[in-house]
């Protein structure tokens, strides 16, 4: 065991995966520099430039080529530099990667992983900072995974690489180097589709994922100081969604707050709200609440703190659910 940041944990998972000769990394600057966030640092040196490939700046081509590799029996991992840079590849992802299994009735599959750093953190606004995971969660045929901490990052990435279906692997930029924790040295998988109950509580369920777990954990501590016992769920996977864990918790607490930094309208919180409303409405003691980013373009650094939901907003909204 060693203390690792999320970036180091992801690097370890990739290094272990590359021991399989069918695994390849493709992306802009993933080789020589180790990627803009240095997640692939040292891997090209260790595994060679034909296995860790610096590609042209051509996202549609990168994902399309990874798709072709996967269909032809390889296990490619493509990196998009920022979420906003993944949209040129959206055609490949939605129209082709997600559908080849259905189109070919299992004859061809696309077991590839597309790693996408997302969300705020570097303060560069717009496509370097946004959190549009819902546009991937909406696509049948894709799985969408979001780790919030180093230990899950390694296990989930290993599971994503082994998964027979295409996985959109979202890496929260703010969490890359925010904390270190003990991460096992051996190969292990954290199961896709299973949420984690990080804190057991009885009054209100806080549901979040990715970078927002940090504020959510802090909010739970503050709520406890105010006499409110919050249960904290880290979804870890958006698709397939662990509705069982969500519903069991809400049936127990009777209150729920869905939290994300993505814009509010049609954000993933709406899906959580819908699941709870459909399946656990009669357990609710107060209306379903959401704490989200605003329906605006992500602003520059000086205003990012106003955009990203803070601990105070989560606490306030959770306290309001207690008043009902």
């Amino acid at each position: 065991m060693a203390e690792r940041t999320m970036a180091q944990a992801l690097n370890a998972a990739l290094a272990e995966a590359l021991e399989d000769p069918s695994v390849m990394l493709l992306g802009e600057d993933v080789g020589t520099t180790g990627g803009v966030f240095r997640v692939t640092d040292g891997l090209q040196k260790r595994f060679g430039s034909d296995r860790v490939v610096d590609t042209p700046v051509a996202e549609s081509g990168i994902v399309g080529a990874a798709f072709g590799l996967a269909v032809a029996g390889m296990k490619p991992i493509a990196e998009m530099q920022f979420m906003g840079f993944s949209y040129p590849a959206y055609d490949q992802i939605v129209n082709h990667v997600s559908r080849i299994r259905n189109r070919s009735r299992h004859r061809f599959t696309a077991p590839l992983v597309i790693r996408i750093p997302y969300g705020g953190g570097i303060g560069a606004a717009e496509h370097h900072s946004e959190s549009l995971e819902a546009i991937y969660a909406h696509v049948p045929g894709l799985k969408v995974v979001v780790p919030s901490r180093p230990i899950d990052a390694k296990g989930l990435l290993t599971a994503a690489i082994a998964d027979p279906d295409p996985v959109i692997f979202l890496e929260p930029i703010r969490a890359y180097r925010a904390v270190k924790e003990e991460v096992p040295d051996e190969v292990y998988e954290t199961p896709i589709g299973v949420a984690s109950i990080e804190r057991v509580g009885s009054d209100v369920t806080l549901i979040a994922y990715g970078a927002m777990m940090k504020e959510t954990r802090q909010a739970a501590e503050l709520l406890a100081a105010n006499g409110v016992d919050a249960e904290v769920i880290d979804l870890r996977t958006l698709v397939p969604l662990d509705t069982e864990t969500i519903l069991a918790s809400v049936e127990h607490t009777g209150r729920v707050v869905a939290i994300h930094e993505a814009p509010r309208t049609a954000g993933f919180g709406a899906e959580i709200a819908a699941v709870v409303a459909e399946k656990a409405l009669y357990s609710l003691k107060s209306p379903i609440a959401r704490v989200t980013g605003w329906d605006i373009v992500v602003p520059l650094r000086r205003a990012e703190k106003h955009y990203t939901p803070g601990v105070d907003r989560i606490v306030n909204v959770a306290m309001r659910t207690m008043e009902a």
Binding site: G64, G68, I100, R103, F108
Partner: peptide
């Protein structure tokens, strides 16, 4: 598919990267 067709696509131009990836797999192996 069993004759070596990777599919037909309704998005114009979109099939080309797929062929590039398949060819890269051939080269790697």
């Amino acid at each position: 598919f069993d004759t070596g067709s990777l599919g037909a696509l309704g998005v114009v131009g979109a099939g080309n990267p797929l062929a590039v990836g398949a060819a890269l797999a051939f080269q790697m192996r």
